[in-house]
């Protein structure tokens, strides 16, 4: 150890690397949900009537409202990236904050939606489900809770990333020449949107 030097590691920042890395991560998320969609497809194929019946129980209005607000939030965060590229930092912060609030609204809706199900005695492994429902309906609600629950978890993660993005913006660490954190935050949020675009019709619109 006669030459113990302090070595600084190089800054490996590269906007395109970050973007590609985020896309690759999105692929893993797509396949994570993809596996759930495979399960859904198989069980739906095996129990078409039960899925039909169980789908009636879900509230279309709440589903549609959540779809609308999620789409709007996707637009606002996409606009935030444009704002940053134009150098309008405060506009970007404002748009991300709006997105955050909309995400929160989505979760509140989800909370009430799940709450209604719970009050009807429908939750995974509940007495009511096991004694009164057919196998197909149990599978439908099992998948419903797992898939929308996992989706809600992704909403929360997306919102957590937004907090970091806003902090980076406020401190000037995320700026027009180094936008990756905000861009990736946006990509992740769009992924959440993308998954919902498929969850919505498969659970709420199959009458």
């Amino acid at each position: 150890m006669e030459h113990a030097h302090h070595v600084e590691h190089p800054d490996m920042y590269d906007a395109e690397s970050s973007k590609v890395g985020m896309w690759l991560f999105i692929f893993t998320e797509l396949l994570l949900f993809g596996a759930l969609f495979v399960i859904y497809a198989v069980y739906r194929y095996m129990n078409p009537d039960a899925f039909h019946l169980a789908g009636e129980e879900l509230n279309r209005v709440i589903g549609t409202v959540n779809t609308v607000i999620l789409l709007i939030s996707s637009m606002t965060i996409a606009m935030a990236t444009t704002a940053l590229q134009k150098g309008h930092r405060n506009v970007a912060i404002g748009l991300v904050s709006i997105t955050f609030v909309i995400g929160l609204a989505f979760l509140v809706n989800k909370y009430f939606e799940w709450g209604v199900k719970f009050s009807h005695g429908i939750w995974p492994g509940s007495e009511h489900m096991i004694s009164e429902m057919s196998h197909g309906e149990i599978l439908f609600f099992g998948l419903y809770f797992v898939m929308t629950g996992l989706h809600a978890l992704h909403i929360i993660i997306g919102m957590a990333i937004m907090v970091f993005a806003v902090r980076g913006l406020a401190r000037g660490k995320v700026h027009a020449d180094r936008p990756s954190l905000l861009d990736n935050c946006g990509l992740y949020w769009h992924l959440v949107d993308l998954i919902w675009i498929f969850l919505f019709p498969l659970f709420y619109l199959i009458h």
Binding site: L32, G34, A35, N47, H135, G142, L143, L150
Partner: peptide, 26 residues
Amino acid sequence: PVVGITLVLVALERVFGVGIFDPALG
């Protein structure tokens, strides 16, 4: 990711009794 979510489902079946792979629940 496919095995990741599959293992999560097994864990959920164990803890919450969600019926996904359990033949007793379809």
